[in-house]
Nucleic acid binder design. Structure first.
Lengths: 253, 253
DNA sequence: TGGCGCAGATTGTTGAACAACGTGTTGCGC
DNA sequence: GCGCAACACGTTGTTCAACAATCTGCGCCA
């Protein structure tokens, strides 16, 4: 049976061609950060990759889910070839998994991936923080993210809490003024978000660490980068333990 | 004038279809490293990307050179669509630069890129070294790379010196057991090699630091990771200064 | 029950075609 | 002669249809 010809099977729009005419979302949180990089452009391939990336981390395609070339090509009104170019980009970024004659699926991070992601995050974030300059513009963005998170917690808006949390850590890495570290961190965040999608429950995962963000920031201002880095390391390790615990409880990987 | 129709203009083979049937080269230096990752597979797209990657870092395509889709597709006997998939992979890795309606060209690192690459290298390599375990298998690979480099210096084989030098640093990062750090480092090395190709002169760039590799390794064994990390940091900074000096002398970027 | 083979579906890749965009050139007016 | 617009050409962006190769699920037979 060919389910491609059955139009009414879809839950959403039949096609989403309009989504490709404009940039899907800001992708980044803050204003004019470092970012002189990126595969940006105006052509469909790059736009499609960013669009898909946003949909994936938003949970529209769940971890492990297979993405059919024919179905998605029709859904976004692009050719299979153009879609495959976007697939290659996202596979290279670690969001999709490509198995040669079996197509692509949304990456489903294993325990080993979670361990590695947190190891690199600790490595990068503590290193950046230890060398950080408190007067760097990104420090103000960290402060703003903490304030946003507080407001979101008060409003019980856990999605906004998660967004503010990610903005905090991204601003933290932006302290380094390194486009490559920032890019690496974005990819790690995206991968980690897949792990969060896999285990669900954004409240406990994000909500618990809002106060600690503020604490790290205060320590940075009061005692300097080294002390803040030590605090951040403990914080990240505890976060890792929470995620791994949930993995174990759910019997994953 | 269309130089595509002029067959005898080529210096090499007219087509290189045979190059796609087998893996081009080991890509990695050592044996079974960490590497559970990678867009590997058996299909042409992935093989082609690795093949092109090897050619680029080997200097067959020079930094800044434009890569015509039609010409390369014919040269490697693949379709433009397949070639474009490989282009997207390599652009994502930072080896190629993609400008929307102007095609791809080999990335030509600017001073800002060199600064950033060395910053991240220092960040990663010193961090790994500081936490390193001397009994890790990768330490033996570091030792082997140092020995190889010595032999290559004696034989005045500067290409082999460069290879051994890169093997040393890759083994160093492998001490972390982190696939993501290793992957990041490989990309940084590839980008840095583009900078070396841009300024030429591999002898002074690689040959000067062979002895220091051994020294770092000895310090690691004798005094531990922290001391070795400090030494490596100085070493990398001096290497950076050499590269930037050459950039300035040549009036680049 | 357990393996075999077959049919259907999906991916991998190709070639041709056309639209869209950049670039260099020609020719015009000043 | 010089600046500038129109044009022609080459290249990239994208689509479509087709076919080979591979995977998957199912029925069949022993």
């Amino acid at each position: 049976m060919n389910f491609l010809s059955a139009g009414p099977t879809y839950d959403g729009d039949v096609t989403e061609a309009a989504a490709l005419t404009a940039t899907p979302d800001g992708a980044s949180t803050g204003g004019p950060a470092v970012e002189p990089e990126g595969p940006s452009g105006g052509e469909t391939g790059g736009v499609l990759a960013r669009l898909l990336s946003g949909r994936i981390v938003a949970g529209e395609f769940r971890p492990g889910q297979r993405l059919s070339e024919a179905a998605l090509a029709q859904r976004f009104s692009v050719s299979r070839n153009t879609l495959r170019e976007a697939f290659r980009v996202l596979a290279e970024q670690g969001l999709l998994e490509h198995v040669p004659h079996r197509g692509v699926s949304v990456r489903s991070p294993r325990v080993a991936d979670v361990l590695d992601i947190y190891r690199v995050r600790r490595h990068v974030e503590t290193g950046v923080l230890a060398r950080a300059d408190v007067s760097h513009p990104a420090a103000a963005r960290m402060r703003a993210a903490v304030d946003d998170a507080d407001r979101a917690v008060e409003a019980r808006d856990w999605v906004a809490v998660g967004t503010a949390n990610m903005a905090f850590h991204e601003a933290l890495v932006a302290l380094s003024d390194s486009p490559r570290l920032l890019r690496l961190h974005r990819q790690l965040s995206a991968e980690l978000r897949l792990a969060f999608l896999l285990i669900g429950d954004p409240q406990t995962l994000h909500g618990r660490f809002v106060a600690r963000n503020r604490s790290v920031l205060d320590t940075l201002a009061a005692e300097g980068g080294a002390a803040a880095a030590r605090e951040l390391e403990d914080y990240l390790t505890e976060s890792e333990r929470t995620v791994l615990g949930t993995y174990a409880r759910l019997g994953l990987s």
